[in-house]
Design a protein around this nucleic acid. Structure first.
Lengths: 341, 341
DNA sequence: GTGAAAGCGCTAACAT
DNA sequence: ATGTTAGCGCTTTCAC
């Protein structure tokens, strides 16, 4: 590949100039005559000259690279962030290096190392729930922006989410509609995120003095398969719920599949709150009420932090910590409970 | 950021060795004694040493970078490809540099330049429909893998799609169900892709000696907004269609929104074929019949080509050209035409 | 088994 | 307005 692109020297040789002159001309340095500049540019163009970012980086001490570490780019949420960041990078002439952990801490460690090899000028990471200590050690030296999951030992700006709030919001909405038997399908309670949601549920229920029906809670992997099985299962419980809250995007997908398969009338037979802001929630007949994150704000926040690179070294620990809240997006899949059924 | 990481020299100084020795030790060179190796590794670990990929690249002549240029990572189709590629890169210790054109040829040109600066060992590009000549010139020298859109002047492996086939498939399916008044909403005919689909439609109709009702064709930008308006509009035509084929994912999204808003019974009042393989097509009540691409195969194909880097320089023009076909995924949104209505 | 020296392509300091 | 020199961090001869 790229069988040896021409270098500055090649251009210089062609015009009987020195390579520094060429370098300056291409950088539009004011000391080079316009005439020389245009001649140099002409040759550069003709030879297909492309700068060597490695060499440049070596000289300048830092790369023009932005590192981005995400669990899964297939997820529309992370895709949106990557998209925004890619646009920002394009504007600033930076490279976006993307690494996907797939939620695996071991892979994560390797990826962080490799990312660091490029000497990124900024690093945005959305770590797995349990990063390896070596990973943390690496990141401690690096001033990175943490997204979603926040590790206490890693300094730097942070963009996270008020975890339990979403679940509380969903519950309060359903409780206000009169529902009392509410099913909950969410990620396993071992993960910080699952635990937080369960807390949110409890908070909302306690405020109304409603007891959580344990048999209506299903927690497991955040997959469509689990969502499907869990919802199918909930529908079979002795006293079926009048409403269900599905607390991740993929679980919601599986869950809705189960409801479709069961030909459950929504919201006539069952009220449903899903998670995320997949575009199809809006296309679904009547619309799907959902708990969403203000993605725009989130992407903007990350973007702003990346641009705010001027780090004040004096300030000891005054890093911005942005905390976003979930929002309830009420659509047609939730309705007051009906005494019937 | 990354306030000067330690270098090989730092490690060498600490142990009173020479930097080449350290370099060799870390590369696990057989000539270095095991004892020295472990001492070096210990210090490297303690100092938080991370190799400098720029310097390495400079020496070796090429980077360990894979460049990926896509129009939009938000699109699940491209997201899947990026995901697969990212995984491959992780395994091989390569960096995945991602650039998003957003369909803009000017931005595309800048991005390609910047990508090339990293001296990627492979480049995978999904170009805009009308790349600038300079972009093509740059790419001609670079041996890149082209995805979807194929420019005739750029050599190298190619993964594309049999464009008109999807539209034909959709039409044949609907015709077989007895539909004769079939609406079509697709991307504007100026784009190669829009034109191809229109061709596919014509082929299918001619084979059945059915005339295309011009008033049932709506072509425009591939956006949800256009899809929404176009479908809403189709429903208002004097003799409304009994079936509609929406030929891109985003158009389908908007279109389905319009059908939901209009409370159209599917497939009782109207049969619908959508495009793509969004997971929600399966969750939709009854399922949405769709024209899909074998994404797995596609991602695998790209992945394989990237790994097949060993370029046979002797062979003049024997690059693999993989052409994938659309598939009909029949679900519940299409049914035999009813004489009623 | 280890050290010394050179050089990859580029830029910045210091001459002219 | 242009040339000279040096050096970024690394790997690769070649020497010992």
């Amino acid at each position: 590949m790229a069988r040896s692109r021409p270098t500055l020297k090649d251009i210089a040789a062609e015009l009987k100039l020195s390579h520094p002159t060429v370098s300056r001309a291409l950088a539009d340095d004011h000391r080079i005559s316009d005439e020389t500049k245009s001649r140099i540019r002409e040759v550069a163009q003709r030879l297909g000259y492309v700068a060597n970012s490695g060499a440049r980086m070596l000289k300048r001490g830092h790369g023009n690279v932005v590192g981005l570490l995400l669990p899964d780019i297939t997820n529309e949420f992370y895709a949106a962030i990557a998209q925004k960041l890619a646009m920002d990078c394009a504007i600033r002439g930076h490279q976006l290096v993307l690494s996907i952990t797939g939620g695996d801490p071991d892979r994560e460690h390797v990826l962080v190392r490799t990312l660091l090899e490029a000497r990124p000028s900024s690093l945005i990471v959305s770590l797995t729930g349990a990063p390896r200590p070596e990973t943390v050690a690496l990141l401690r030296e690096t001033q990175c922006i943490q997204l979603m999951y926040v590790h206490p030992e890693i300094p730097g700006p942070v963009v996270s989410v008020e975890d339990s709030g979403g679940a509380r919001l969903a519950m309060e909405h359903l409780l206000a509609l009169g529902h009392r038997r509410i099913g909950f399908v969410g990620p396993s309670p071992e993960s910080e995120i699952g635990a937080a949601r369960l807390r949110g549920i409890h908070q909302a229920l306690q405020a109304r003095k409603v007891k959580l029906a344990d048999e209506l809670v299903r927690m497991g992997p955040s997959t469509a398969e689990f969502g499907f099985e869990a919802v199918k299962d909930l529908l079979r419980t002795a006293k079926a719920p009048t409403a269900i809250y599905m607390s991740t995007g993929t679980i919601s997908l599986g869950g809705m599949k189960a409801l479709s398969a069961g030909k459950i009338g929504i919201p006539t037979e069952l009220s449903v709150v899903v998670a995320g802001n997949s575009p199809w929630y809006d296309a679904w007949p009547g619309g799907l009420t959902s708990i969403t994150l203000p993605m725009e704000d989130l992407a903007d926040a990350v973007s702003t932090l990346v641009l705010q690179r001027p780090a004040r070294k004096s300030a000891v620990k005054a890093f911005p910590a942005i905390k976003l809240s979930f929002q309830l997006c009420a659509r047609g899949s939730t309705a007051p409970v009906r005494s019937s059924r």
